[in-house]
Write a protein that binds this DNA or RNA. Structure first.
Lengths: 148, 148
DNA sequence: TACCAATAGTTAGTGTGACAAATATATGAA
DNA sequence: TTCATATATTTGTCACACTAACTATTGGTA
């Protein structure tokens, strides 16, 4: 494959990723979800794994620690998440959803699946698998932590 | 296709786009390119289309006006780009590369193609076309300005 | 001529991302 | 015990995305 051929993939990838995020954010706003897309990602992971530490959560959602700190700050200001001291390790927090947070996740989850579905009009299930395979291959090609 | 199946595409898309950008940015830093990935995108487009206005350029690189304003500010601080008053329309600027900017583009272009190539190891040319097709379909599905 | 909608660009506010450095705490070795 | 090192989190800085509001200018129209 020549260099010229795929010189544009990063542009297409970036613009599509931004479009997806932007579209979701618009829908969130329109539906008065009162969270951002990134805040939702954190909430969803917390719902699935209560009691995780910030470090564990940062790995799950692939955000760095400073970014996660700020997102947790915002979510706890909104009363959706609480930091609780780890019983053994006083450096660490255990994060968990408040009752309000649980309700938020339950209420939003189905609506967000609907929003996500929109992107796949005119595409098949095998397109989806191809897409996933290529994305993951690219990711691994550039991931210096994996394998090499 | 069920909802659950593709619930994760946005996460994969986002993480891959960030990995691609991050990888490029690391290489830029390591090679002392002294520009960010987004600044490079602007420089490259300016090299191909001298004399564009900021509005035209914003459409080419898919950035909004405030973002482009700041990127141009940064590039002109570095002495790579100049704003010149449009001869007829005093609201508008014509952007062009300085000699230093031209040299920068010429020097970096081949090195950046190499960096971009890394992502496509273990993938075929038809993977690339599939990928492009799916990305563009998703983009159009979510683009409220197109068609509908 | 006077008005007014549209256009070009800038500024400000909020949220996020990467990175470096600082703080606090924990842990293992001498 | 004490010191070096590692871990968990926070803070600060710079860059970018998006929205909204603003200035200045242009061009059409009453």
């Amino acid at each position: 494959m020549t260099q010229e051929l795929f010189a544009s993939y990063s542009f297409l990838l970036d613009r599509t990723a931004r479009k997806v995020k932007h579209y979701a954010q618009q829908q969130f706003k329109f539906g008065k979800f009162d969270v951002t897309v990134d805040q939702w990602l954190v909430l969803k992971n917390l719902a699935e794994r209560p009691q995780v530490s910030q470090t564990e959560l940062a790995q799950l959602v692939l955000k760095d620690h400073p970014t996660l700190t700020r997102i947790i700050d915002l979510l706890s200001k909104k009363g959706l998440v609480q930091r609780v001291q780890h019983p053994q390790d006083r450096r660490s927090f255990q994060l968990h959803l408040t009752a309000k947070g649980e309700n938020k996740v339950a209420a939003l989850k189905p609506r967000i699946l609907e929003i996500r579905e929109k992107a796949w009009e005119n595409l098949t299930e095998s397109d989806f698998h191809e897409f996933k395979r290529i994305l993951n291959t690219i990711y691994q090609n550039l991931d210096t932590n994996s394998g090499v």
